[in-house]
Design a protein around this nucleic acid. Structure first.
Lengths: 348, 348
DNA sequence: CTGAAATATGTAATCGTTTACATAGAGGGC
DNA sequence: GCCCTCTATGTAAACGATTACATATTTCAG
């Protein structure tokens, strides 16, 4: 591999001069500039970023710690991060880790010397214990908050979104509204449940434990939870699934059971994944701006990096938006439009 | 930040000894071993991997270059890579890049000194020109091949899978079978088209250009292509979409047009994303083992890294499997089972 | 014409590790 | 008692860049 020394030797200059040309630091004559660039091009020299970051103590890389994530959420949040990172000259070092405290700590150690900061997604509820991480590098928590204010965080407006969806169902006249919950110990899931309950109370309805079914965010969970709800003596008239995947599973179960949606059972989801509008019937959902979630996390982190982690901590929140389609019987705001999305999708 | 020197000073030993304890290289007395580990723990010392990789010239990181990818494919291929990488003590440096030659070259340079090898996904057809990359580090091409044998590659059995799906439709008695094509210049798309045509020829059917509609792998494209097909004077009786997203868009269009699936129109997809079985009717598709795709790419790359890029090049291929569900009218092999998938999905 | 300032370049220390080589003491075979 | 081998440790040279400081040359005000 050709190093800066090789270039210097070939150009009959010192390494310092070569470095100055390449970084535009310090003064260089026009002639030297040309000469060195020519040699660099000819020899195909590329600076060794590892060596560079050792002396500058900047890696221009940000670490991303994620739990096991599936589908659209994963790809979109990473897209948001990568777009923002690249725009600022940063790379992404991605690692999946157990969402618990130990897993995250281990992963963060393993990243020492490789990254300038870390975005950690740890929806697990005891992410709170992260607050006393022995870390001097900036950290941003995604989809969870830490007790105290020691760590920057960015979350989804789960509470508000869920409350709106439940309120929407109530406004359509539903009294018995079931919820298919998300994973236990998951922060988003807990907040969505809270929003659902709050909406019921707002309307003077007492939450019925029988109508709160367990789920784990998978289609299969939505499918079986819906069957259980149908088996109840006093069936609900509406189902709010804590995410779209479960809502889709539920739709499938209702279809097989010959239940008409939304006439006999209204169904609402959360996330508004692209597929939601292509369901039968098109699925009402709570839109989550996932790209922004990733983008903001990186922006927040870069801020921390710039200020050497010596900045006022922030807690941001991306806002959700209720999207009404046919599955709740609301007025369809949109139909699958033949609009040409400009996503050049590759395979999938 | 505490360095190895600090540890050495505190333990009243030389840095060499500390290094030896930490790496288990060279002999150390049991007593020294204990002492140093105690100090390391107490001072919370973590080796600086940047510095380490400078001298060892191993970064234990592999670079991943991806085009804009969406949904399940993206998350699953990365999961396959990360699982395999972690099992071998490697990290993933992920970057999205334009799929063309220039974009990939730039991205690869930017990774010099950060990674030991690169997995590049470049489904764009002129990935072929990559073959003379000025690179000395190992590279594995994902979902594309380079002319000549200079680069390892791993691809999907697109041709075989598409041919099987088309043959399946033919076996059900269909004569006029349309295809909704994938993105132009996309390698997977081209191969799937080739497989479709081959199956028709095998059955003595002449491919009809009118039945080959453009698409770009999005739901919206599938939706509008289906509408166009319905508007033909001589409608097809079956549609083969080059991926599931387009098949789902097509299903949606057919539903709105009051066309019964599969009675009036059979529909088949490609990829077999998890949602396929939850569609109405459940979607027949060609299953692609995406996780394996990522896993094998990394395995291949690690092989190249171990052998310092001085190994026989390989072209591997992951095999597809036809999955028949109701949308083609075939015998449903499975129904949405309440099986508890052990994917702890987080939010989505 | 002189000396200060500006410009262009080189020298060498430094970042935090690993590791080849050197050193020193202990053990043991003869 | 000698020499060889082991074991345990230290010294210092890398790795490939950046950069403070030194030096040499040019420019130019007074």
């Amino acid at each position: 591999m050709v190093t800066i020394k090789d270039v210097a030797r070939e150009a009959k200059m010192s390494v310092a001069t070569v470095s100055r040309v390449l970084n535009g630091s310090g003064p260089v004559s026009e002639e030297t500039n040309r000469l060195i660039r020519e040699v660099v091009g000819r020899m195909r020299y590329v600076p060794h970023s590892g060596a560079r970051s050792l002396i500058t103590s900047k890696t221009e890389t940000i670490g991303v710690l994620l739990p096991d994530l599936y589908g659209e959420f994963f790809s979109e949040v990473i897209r948001g991060m990568d777009d923002t990172a690249q725009r600022n000259g940063y790379h992404l070092l991605i690692s999946r880790a157990y969402a618990d405290r130990h897993g995250i700590e281990t992963a963060i150690r393993a990243m020492r010397g490789r990254v300038d900061g870390v975005v950690a997604m740890s929806p697990d509820l005891d992410a709170e214990s992260l607050l006393n991480l022995p870390s001097t590098i900036p950290i941003v928590l995604l989809c969870s908050v830490s007790r105290g204010n020691e760590i920057d965080s960015i979350t989804i407006q789960n509470f508000r979104g869920a409350r709106e969806m439940a309120a929407h169902l109530i406004s359509l006249g539903h009294k018995r509204i079931a919820i298919i919950k998300g994973s236990v110990r998951n922060h988003d899931a807990a907040e969505r449940l809270r929003g659902y309950r709050m909406a019921l109370r707002d309307a003077g309805i007492t939450p019925d434990p029988l109508l709160e079914r367990d789920g784990d965010f998978t289609e299969a969970a939505g499918y079986s939870a819906a069957l259980q709800l149908l088996a109840l003596k006093k069936r609900p008239t509406a189902i709010f699934a804590a995410n779209d995947s479960m809502a889709i599973g539920a739709l499938s179960a209702l279809r097989e059971s010959g239940i008409a949606v939304p006439e006999e059972m209204a169904v609402g989801g959360f996330d508004d994944i692209p597929l939601a509008r292509y369901m039968d019937p098109p699925l009402s959902s709570v839109h989550v701006p996932i790209w922004e979630l990733g983008a903001k996390a990186v922006t927040l982190l870069l801020h921390g990096i710039t200020h050497k982690n010596d900045h006022a901590r922030r807690r941001e929140r991306v806002s959700t938006k209720l999207v009404i389609r046919r599955s709740t019987g609301g007025e369809p705001a949109e139909r699958p439009p033949p609009q040409t999305l400009n996503r050049e999708k590759v395979s999938v």
